[in-house]
């Protein structure tokens, strides 16, 4: 196993081990923190496909995160009110079943990513950053000004949604569910990076003209990557909403987009487990520094600045040495 492989194994063992320990000593709050880290890591794994493999700096992934969140909020709020979403031409009921909600969240986020990607990928570089940011804001303002689903106040869900055969109200079982999805996404992104598609995408990031010359369309490769990326981040959004039993327009805000990028960069761009390291560190800092000072964002800002200026490659990149770091 390579050095990065060992680091990844240790990291995942840590993310799974901490809540197991907390479960043994009956500290449910720590389990919730670990669940939060796993879900945010999943959002980062989604972004990493676009950002790390595709080189697409999207500052609008909050759109997909929020769509996932609202997919959960809308379905579950209709189910808890016994009020169908639509009666004509076909009857559509709300649902409290996680697998159905996940499917809807992934499909909705993928569809949004297809439209946003098709428009934004006409441009590149700094235009792409700004356009994805603007699309994210568009969803944010829409969510604020559309009163049917809570507007600015958001939507609350009384009871966490269910998963067949599990008691999702038990923190450790819900953590297990989120962790399993995170592992699946990590496996998917690791396989993707080595698959012909991932190699072609990586090549399109480095020398698009050559990729075009051998008959592949860089635009189409990037669009597919962007859609997969958005879909995974959407799934994370649905889980995040379920963790809090609450969705609000904040999930769409551009700070959310910035934070998802921060997870990826803190951990290490294009490293399979980079987002896991980044999200775990972020949640830990939020918790530890948040206890020390009300103004913990200053310290987060300083740490982030130091990582960007001096520790290029993030945590995994610094520990594992130069590997497949983003250049």
């Amino acid at each position: 196993m390579s050095r990065e492989g060992w680091i990844n194994a240790l990291l995942l063992a840590g993310v799974a081990g901490v809540p197991l320990w907390a479960w043994a000593v009956d500290e449910p709050f720590t389990i919730t923190l670990a669940t939060r880290a796993a879900i945010l890591a999943l959002a980062g794994v989604g972004l990493n496909i676009a950002l790390g493999l595709g080189g697409l700096v999207s500052l609008g992934h909050a759109a997909f995160f929020g769509i996932g969140g609202y997919a959960m909020g809308i379905l579950a709020s209709h189910a808890q009110a016994y009020d169908p979403i639509m009666e004509a031409p076909i009857l559509i009921q709300g649902t409290k079943s996680m697998p159905v909600i996940w499917l809807v969240a992934v499909a909705a986020a993928a569809l949004a990513a297809l439209v946003i990607g098709a428009l934004s990928l006409r441009t590149s570089g700094v235009y792409f950053i700004m356009i994805t940011l603007a699309f994210g804001q568009m969803f944010y303002f829409f969510a604020i000004s559309w009163p049917a689903y809570g507007g600015e106040d958001g939507l609350s869900i009384y009871v966490r949604n269910g998963f067949p055969g599990l008691n999702t109200l038990d923190p450790i079982q819900f953590f297990g569910l989120c962790f399993a999805l995170l592992l699946l996404a990590l496996l998917f992104s690791a396989r993707l990076a080595k698959a012909p598609f991932g190699l072609a995408l990586n090549a399109a990031r480095q020398v698009p003209t050559r990729v075009a010359t051998v008959g592949l369309s860089p635009f189409r490769l990037r669009l597919v990557a962007f859609v997969m990326s958005g879909a995974i981040t959407g799934l994370a959004g649905a889980l995040f909403a379920d963790l809090n039993r609450f969705v609000s327009p904040t999930m769409f805000s551009w700070q959310t987009s910035g934070e998802i990028i921060v997870f990826v960069i803190l951990g290490g761009v294009a490293r399979t487990c980079g987002p896991v390291a980044g999200a775990a560190l972020f949640v830990a800092l939020e918790h530890v520094l948040g206890d020390l000072s009300d103004y913990w964002h200053i310290y987060l800002g300083l740490i982030l600045l130091a990582v960007v200026l001096f520790a290029r490659g993030g945590i995994v990149g610094t520990l594992a040495g130069r590997g497949r770091a983003h250049d």
Binding site: I129, Y295, H297, I298
Partner: peptide, 22 residues
């Protein structure tokens, strides 16, 4: 590259905003 610029200036926002709040 632009990614580093986005990140470093995002960090500056955090520092400025919290510093002003302080």
């Amino acid at each position: 590259d632009h990614l580093d610029q986005v990140l470093a200036t995002f960090a500056l926002i955090l520092i400025f905003s919290e510093g002003t709040r302080w």
